[in-house]
Simulated scan of single mutants.
Amino acid sequence: MTATTAQKTEAQTSNTPPLHVENLSRVYPSGEGQVQALASFTHTFPPGMTAVVGPSGSGKSTLLNLLAGFDSPSTGQVSVGDVNLTTLSEPARADFRLAHYGFVFQNHNLVSILSAQENVEFPLTLAGLPPKERRARALELLELVGLKNRAGHLPNQLSGGEAQRVAIARALARDPGILLADEPTGNLDSKTGELVLSLLTGAAAQGRRVILITHDSEVAALAHHRLSVRDGVVTAG
C-alpha cells in the first residue's frame, strides 16, 4: 500500500484539543550562572504540521520536551485544551500523554523484544484495551503504513524505514490529537524519508497537530506552519 492510499484509508479523525504555550521558558543552572535554553515565548499551535527548525543546540529539543511534559518550564505553562499540563503530577501527566500524544523519534525507540504488532499494541495495552480490540487496531495501523505483512517481525528484522513506519503506527494507536516527531527522517535515505513524511503529512491532514523537529529546510518546506529556534529564541516563519 502506498502512503497516499494509506492516508485516504485512515478512517478516524482526531478530536484535537488546542495546544497553547504562554510565556514558556527554560533556564538551566550552569556552574555559578545560568543557561537560557529557551527564551520566554507565547504561541498557539494550529492544526496541521508545524516544523520547528534550527541548528543543533538551538533549543528545539528543549521545546519538544516542554510541550510533552517531559520537562518542567522555568516560567509559563503548556495548555492542552483546558488542561494546564505543567500543574499536573507526574503520574497524571503520563496518563494525559498516553491519551493525547503520540511520539516519533529519530531512532524509532521500538521495544526490541516485541514484534511490530506488539509494539503498536503497547500503548493500547497500557490503556487497558481488550486483547482482541488492540490486535485489530494494531493490524489496521500496520496496514495503514504498508507493513501488515511484517506484523510478526522483531525490530532487528526490520529495515530502518520499516521500523520508523512501525513507530508511526504506534504513535497513532490511540488516535492522539498531538504528534511530536523529533528528526524522524534523520537516519533514513531520501526515498524512505519521503514515505515517512508522507505518513506524517497524512496524519496532519486528519486535523491533528503535528510538531516536527528538523534541521532540514526541504523537510520544513512541507509543513503548513514554521517556527525557527536560534540560541533559545523562538520566532515564527
Score class of each variant (00 low, 15 high):
T4F: 15
A6V: 01
A6E: 09
Q7K: 13
E10C: 13
S14K: 07
L19P: 02
H20M: 12
L24H: 08
S25V: 04
R26G: 00
V27E: 11
P29D: 02
S30P: 01
G33L: 14
Q36V: 14
S40V: 02
T42W: 13
P46M: 15
G48Q: 11
V52G: 09
G54L: 09
S56L: 10
G59E: 00
K60V: 10
L63H: 11
L64A: 09
L64K: 03
L66G: 03
G69T: 02
F70G: 00
S72R: 15
G76Y: 04
Q77K: 15
Q77R: 15
V78G: 00
V78T: 04
S79Y: 11
V80P: 01
N84I: 12
N84M: 11
N84S: 09
T87W: 14
T87I: 04
T87N: 05
T87L: 09
L88F: 12
A94K: 13
R97I: 03
L98A: 13
G102P: 04
F103Y: 14
Q106D: 03
Q106A: 08
N107W: 15
N109C: 10
N109Q: 15
V111P: 00
S112P: 08
I113V: 14
L114I: 03
Q117A: 15
N119C: 04
V120L: 13
E121C: 06
L124E: 06
L124W: 11
T125Y: 08
L126D: 12
A127F: 10
A127V: 08
G128R: 11
L129G: 00
E133A: 14
R134D: 04
A138H: 00
L139V: 02
L141P: 05
E143L: 07
E143M: 01
K148S: 10
R150P: 00
R150A: 11
A151V: 00
L154R: 01
P155Y: 09
N156K: 08
Q157M: 06
S159C: 03
S159E: 01
G161T: 03
G161H: 13
E162K: 01
A163M: 08
R165G: 06
V166S: 06
A171I: 08
L172V: 07
A173N: 02
D175C: 12
P176D: 09
P176A: 05
L179Y: 02
L179C: 07
A181R: 02
A181K: 05
E183M: 14
P184W: 10
T185P: 09
G186Y: 12
T192V: 05
G193T: 08
L197D: 01
L199M: 14
T201C: 05
T201A: 13
T201L: 15
T201W: 12
Q206E: 06
R208A: 04
R209H: 04
R209F: 08
V210T: 04
I211E: 07
I211D: 04
I213A: 04
H215R: 06
S217R: 12
H225I: 01
L227N: 03
S228G: 03
S228F: 12
V229R: 06
R230M: 09
D231H: 13
T235I: 03
T235P: 01
